[in-house]
Amino acid sequence: MLRFAARRVLLLVPILIGLSILVFLFVRALPGGPETALLGENATPERVAQVRELYGLDRPVYEQYVSYVQSVLSLDFGTSITTRQPVVEEIARRFPGTVELTVTAMIIAVAVGIPLGFVAARRYGSWVDNLSTAGSLLGIAIPVFALGYLLKYFFAIKLGWFPTQGREGSLMFRNEHPTGFYVLDGIVTGNPEAAVDALRHLILPALALATIPLAFITRITRASVLEVTGEDYVRTAEAKGMTRSVITRRHILRNAMLPIVTVVGLQTGLLLSGAVLTETVFAFDGIGRFLAQAVFARDFPVIQAGILFLAVIFVLVNLLVDLSYGLLDPRVRTR
């Protein structure tokens, strides 16, 4: 297992190098070059010259790449054009929010999707099955931001159950945030009101964000449970007179888990991109919204760093998923 893990981690290196090249070339591919990216399209020639010197744009490309990697490794992503603050600080400040949101969304998607898919498969053709199929189809087809508006309209504006936006209420200005994860902060600082307030702000955006992974997880769970149920070893077990619950636990769930874990890993990518849209709809102050604002304002240092950052997160999550394969299925390790 250790050797498998080590090999898997080593495989990351070329991916990360490739990513850094991709993101490095990103801004340099801009029509007008990185000067335009950093200064906007109507900058004065003096400013352009200043920036060219500052960023060493007159040097050969590979030298520029080396210095780019050096600055990335020292966590220097430049300064945001709109907020005029170091990009790394802006991202660090917003990162806990995005983690809170995506983790909550994933919990919702898994906690609802797996049981739903399982029940749908075990009662193949029943109304539960049909309903979950129809629901998951709709979940896949509806644009995330449209669903966000819909949830906001009904549950925040019409019913007033949840706040329309933000991460915490206006009156919570005396709250302390030692960790940056607001729900956790409320608990840690012994302020249950703050924790509940933060949780209430999380629910609608997390629901909107959870829909697509929920739909996929339900479908894949249903499909893989159906497939496993048809396998010989399950039929054998049934013939041997094992009880349904034992079969479910020992055979079906365990074997159906592999494709489900794969989907959960892949869906993290969808969650991270979906966060760009959902956080914008709910004015949830995370990396996604920051990135969306950067796209609006053509703030390329932020776009560049944000994409690199989220891609690295995605790669790391998939590493975890691969490692968990090793735990779930011994065969994978030898491959």
Binding site: L19, L22, S273, V276, L291, I303
Partner: peptide, 12 residues
Amino acid sequence: IMLAVPSLLLAI
């Protein structure tokens, strides 16, 4: 490498 960037993000 391209698949390492979530698709919508890459498109954005």
